[in-house]
């Protein structure tokens, strides 16, 4: 299969993610820490479901890898707005 971009924010390719899984990544955070997928501006909103599907198919679909906890702030926010009471 041709390689394709999975995480646009950080420019991470399918092959990078497959390599991370091969290296032992078994969760969304494990992929993120190895290849930065989901670390960028949208915080994995777009690529996380795809990555979860990939992990599921690799583990034979037995267990759903844990969904990453939504991290505050839920949307990107200006520091200026954040520090104003």
């Amino acid at each position: 299969m041709d390689d394709m971009i999975i995480c646009r924010c950080e420019g991470v390719y399918l092959s990078d993610i497959l390599k991370a899984i091969e290296e032992g990544a078994s969760s969304v955070p494990g992929i993120k820490k190895r290849v930065r997928a989901g670390m960028g501006y949208c915080q994995g909103r777009v690529c996380q479901p795809v990555i979860r599907d990939m992990l599921e198919s690799k583990t034979g679909g037995e267990k759903m890898p844990p969904q990453q906890r939504a991290q505050t702030p839920v949307r990107p926010v200006l520091l200026d707005d954040m520090i104003r009471r």
Binding site: Q43, V77, L78, L79
Partner: peptide, 22 residues
């Protein structure tokens, strides 16, 4: 919020930086 304040005190231009995660 307090960490944000400390950052903007040291680097005023960071008021315009966007925080994506904590």
């Amino acid at each position: 919020r307090k960490i944000g304040e400390a950052a903007v005190r040291a680097f005023p231009l960071l008021a315009k930086a966007r925080i994506i995660r904590a």
